[in-house]
Design a protein around this nucleic acid. Sequence first.
DNA 1: TTGGGG
Length: 486
Amino acid sequence: METAVRERKRQREEVAVPIPSMTAVGGGEAQYVYLPIADALKAAGVRVCIFAAVSEIGAAFHSRGTDFTRTLRIFDQSRSTGISVTFFANDTALLPCVRSSGDVISLHNVKITNYHGEFFVTFDKRSSSFALFEGKASTESSPYQTSMKYHGSKQDDEILTNMRMWLVYPPPEGVGLKDLELQLRSVQSDLTFDLVCKVLHVYEAPSGEWIFYVWDGTDIPTTELQTCLNTEAVPLHLEEVPLPREVLCTLPCIGTILRIFSNKFCKEITHLQRDIYWARFCNITCKQEFGIWKGTLPPSSRVRLLSNEDGSVVERLKMYESRLSTKVGRRPMASLHKAFDFTDVELKRAGYATLMESLTYERVTHKLKTLVRVVSAFPWQGSDLHSLLSSNKHCLRLTLEDPTARIHAYVCKDGLVRFFGGSLTAAALTRKMNRLLGVPEQAAEKDTPVARNPPWIWCCLKSYRLEKEDPWGSRRYQVFGTEVRD
DNA sequence: TTGGGG
């Protein structure tokens, strides 16, 4: 997919047609010839003028030299994937201060450069100039910001109107090639895509690796697991150090928080560490490890900060609000339209809560009804379960997950007999456990590794502390009032 | 009078 898009882009970019670049000065007023971005690319190295819309707004930073710098991404009809422009100025106030993505920018006397096979717009602070206009919703024709050397031209008004028309009524698909944009709920393995998300937390591991905790209000799809049933091999999270409780409690309780891992530093990180921003992660990929989704930033990826007014951000928030407005909307998205005939639960009074709601609950003790999948169990073999039930000494440990978290939950003593619906034979216990873990029936007999897909089950949980001195550190979950059916 | 950044 990505290669096809790149190939088509390259084909278009490689056609070297000489284009008369721009300027003609007449009658005392400057006349500027604006080139579509796609045409400007064919005139690399020549000074050109471009009239485009802003799709991404970078943060202002100190450059490695003496100036301040900011990068924008701009697009027009000829190139909906856009192109990056970096500005420099000795004062942040002189950098373009874009109020909202979708605003319109006029660039005079910029050059197209090709760096490592990718095109960029080079803005020279001595000779180039810019003007910023409000986006499609406005009729204001004068710019809200101009660089010092900017001279408006006669055609600006008309071109601005045309650009706004195009932004309101974009032409049908196929005119431009836009990067694939996915929500967490439609993520797939080994696909390169853009993700618009809220960056809730940034962590720098001692190894120098960065972890972004991101959220878009949707649930990431469930994964299939390998038949490996050993609890020890199934981690609760991918990061070495779990989030401290103070951070955990600031995170939303509905919707998946994806961990995106990155080895490279990007300057947006300093802003993301200080404050919570919506951002566009461009060209990221996801894969599964131990049934947990892990985002990664390949070399071609980048991070762009978004304003809260950005169209994609507004859309995500609206969707989240409508999700919260119904009881069913709060449940795991992947559990909708599924039957829950695997368990009987007795708890009428305790309401439904996600695992994250319980983890961040203000008290150590909490009773809740959850909709979860059993991703592993220890012990899991019928014979071991059988001696567990008869000895009445030890507990069965389950690893439960929903879109918001994974936890260990124990089934102990009387609860065990209740859980399995009586003192069953080893064979009957094996059968029930396999159903819980989603092991396909044919595979259960042989020991061949196949993918398993645990069903969603209703499950009652209660939490409590083991040690008075360390209530949160010793917090444990126990399954109660839940019976696995035949 | 240039680099900076990609």
